[in-house]
Amino acid sequence: MSNSGEGGPGANGILVRVDGVDRTFHRGAEEIHVLDGLDLEVPQGEFLALMGPSGSGKTTLLNLIGGLDRPTRGSVAIGGDRLESMSARRLAAWRARHVGLVFQFYNLLPVLSAARNVELPLLLTHMSGAERRRHVAVALEVVGLSHRANHYPRTLSGGEQQRVGIARAIVSDPTLLLCDEPTGDLDRKAGDEILDLLQALNAQHGKTIIMVTHDPHASARATRTVHLDKGQLSMEAPA
């Protein structure tokens, strides 16, 4: 694979290719093998759910795909960009351009308004202030929160905060959306609204989404579900 894939899919439509990845952590003298020779391919436009028990390596795999962590062995390539060979600086720039992240606990900056939170990824682009404001307005409209743009996170419900988080994730039009338990902190109704939103982003906007979840109700919304157990894929289930 080359390093010049610019985040687009390969000739066979594969956007994410995880190839023989190990990830080992050290706790004192103890070695903890979280991922063990894992292979995974995700085509562009797929909505993939990653399921598995706690400690199975779901979030670790998501972090590797998002360039937030590096494999101990093996390769992670997104559209031809091999992440393990990138410097930390280049990886940060790559993340800014190609990855939208949605967190379980939203991870909004409490001192910034919803609009300012959504604007953050655009500060890493060369957009003018007017362009940034226009993109923020569109992103907030997509998640249905235009009327809450100037509200601070503490004044928003959990569901609204997660919508802001999703708006922040999509505002720079990334190649890939990575969602780590996006409904894990929400009640069923708010969770369903978030899942509706993710489904719409996948179906209507063609976003490739990888979602870590414990919840079969959530994974049912995905186009494919893979199960992890003890650091390896144990089962694949198309929706």
Binding site: A88, A93, N107, L120, P121
Partner: peptide
Amino acid sequence: TREIATLRALGFGA
């Protein structure tokens, strides 16, 4: 810690 990590995750440099 979490806010700084969030900014780094979004692509802000060290």
